[in-house]
Simulated scan of single mutants.
Amino acid sequence: MSAHGDVDLGHTVAGWTGTVVACAGTAGAGAALCAAWAPGIWLGLGVVAVGALVTWVLHL
């Protein structure tokens, strides 16, 4: 049993928004890796972290 009751298993606005933001971050980090641009890799990973934060805030 979940601490928050029934969970919709990711079929929520929070789940989809976090997924889209995280995918954008990984795509950006991957492109920066191919371009050998180190700051872009960190920027992309930062976007992934923001995606996790956005998901957490929206699920509240």
Rank of each mutant, 00 (worst) to 15 (best):
A22D: 03
T26W: 14
L43N: 07
G5A: 03
W56D: 02
D8F: 08
A29P: 10
H11C: 04
V48L: 06
P39K: 03
V13C: 01
V20N: 00
V47I: 15
V54W: 12
G15Y: 04
G15R: 00
A49E: 12
A52E: 13
V13F: 05
L58R: 04
V54D: 02
G28C: 11
A3Q: 02
A31H: 13
A49H: 09
V20F: 13
C23W: 13
A32K: 05
T55I: 09
V57N: 10
V47C: 09
S2P: 02
A29V: 02
D8R: 05
P39Q: 08
L58Q: 15
G30N: 03
V21T: 02
L43M: 14
H11I: 00
A29W: 12
G5D: 05
L58E: 08
W56S: 10
H4T: 06
C34G: 10
M1V: 02
A14C: 09
A29M: 13
V7M: 08
T55S: 15
M1Q: 02
G51E: 13
V54C: 03
G25R: 07
T19C: 03
A38N: 11
A36P: 08
G40I: 14
A14S: 08
H59Q: 15
A36D: 15
G30C: 08
A22P: 00
G51M: 13
G25H: 13
G46P: 06
W56L: 13
L58A: 00
L53K: 11
I41A: 11
V21C: 05
H4M: 00
V20Q: 07
T26G: 07
G25I: 03
V7W: 01
H4D: 02
A29Q: 07
G51V: 10
T17R: 00
C34H: 11
D8N: 02
A52C: 08
V50S: 03
P39E: 09
V48M: 13
G15A: 07
A14T: 00
